[in-house]
Design a protein around this nucleic acid. Structure first.
Length: 287
DNA sequence: ATGGCTAAAAGATTTAGA
């Protein structure tokens, strides 16, 4: 099975190149982030014409996550247990963060080919002084707890957290001189600690051992891509049962090129799920 | 020229992204 994650930055703007990529790269499961639309606005037809089922979680023009899959999806979930919401300050009320605040469309889970996939769009944080950074940290801590609980409940079910984590784990993942430790989000000790705390929940970065270097995002502004001033913020974090099956990985830097690219590129992982999943593709000469 | 952004809703700017 070939699994990809891609922050598409509006699926309506980029549906053609998104589906073209999925078909060309033989993607079985494509987790998308920032689809920026409601389900009724989602361009299902191009995906379905290419042989994909689609699940969408979108509430408005912001955020929005989706999964396209060649095989049907089961146990589809919007949001994870304990996921907080965010309400910005108004004239009469302060900022509110919690499970009783309005939930955003940042997490969509489904089981496909016997693998639990979570398509995740972690809150940005905005700036070090912004309450949105507190929201980001609380959201990540709730994700850590929910992931630990899910792995404890079903340790043999391969699980992957995939998506835009909005954290630059290591200094060598940051090629953007405008992002500075001490001044910027994405590189703060607190955000990095929240990212690495996911390891304690039982998931690990399955792309890093194969591709130690490589950016996944370049800002549209100030010639960041031509200058290769990118950052690495999109990841595939797999449980032990998932990581055992990883046989390859790729970061598709070329998808940042061309007409109307997303500012992110796809990250792809190959899984060896054994003979069962290959039955569709191989002649039954061993039957 | 030594620098240049993109997207959506509702406008003719605001909010958001990272």
């Amino acid at each position: 099975m070939r699994l990809a994650t891609w922050n598409v930055n509006s699926i309506r703007t980029r549906v053609a190149r998104t589906v073209e990529f999925a078909v060309r790269e033989d993607i079985d499961v494509l987790a998308m982030q920032e689809v920026k639309c409601k389900p009724e606005q989602f361009p299902y037809a191009p995906f379905e014409d290419a042989g994909y089922h689609v699940e969408v979680h979108g509430l408005n023009q912001w955020n929005g996550v989706a999964i396209a899959s060649r095989e049907p999806m089961t146990d589809v979930r919007t949001g994870f247990d304990g996921m907080p919401g965010f309400a910005k300050a108004t004239a009469t009320a302060p900022v509110h963060i919690g499970t009783d605040a309005p939930l955003e469309a940042r997490a969509l889970g489904a089981i496909v080919n016997g693998v639990r996939v979570w398509s995740l769009y972690v809150p940005n944080g905005r700036s070090l002084a912004d309450p949105h950074l507190d929201y980001k940290l609380q959201w990540l801590d709730a994700l850590r707890a929910a992931t630990a609980a899910e792995i404890a409940a079903t340790p043999d079910l391969p699980l992957a957290l995939v998506g835009d984590f909005n954290i630059i784990p290591f200094d060598h993942d940051n090629g953007d001189p405008d992002i500075v430790v001490g001044r910027s989000t994405h590189v703060s000790p607190e955000e990095r600690a929240a990212f690495f705390a996911l390891e304690s929940a039982g998931v690990q970065d399955v792309v890093r051992p194969i591709l130690p270097e490589g950016y996944t995002y370049w800002d549209y502004q100030r010639l960041k891509f031509p200058r290769n001033e990118g950052i690495r913020i999109d990841f595939v974090l797999g449980s032990a049962a998932f990581a055992d099956k990883v046989s390859g990985a790729a970061i598709h830097r070329n998808e940042r090129k061309g007409e109307q690219p997303s500012d992110h590129v796809p990250v792809v992982v190959d899984l060896d799920l054994g003979a069962a999943e290959e039955d569709d593709d191989l002649p039954m000469i061993f039957a």
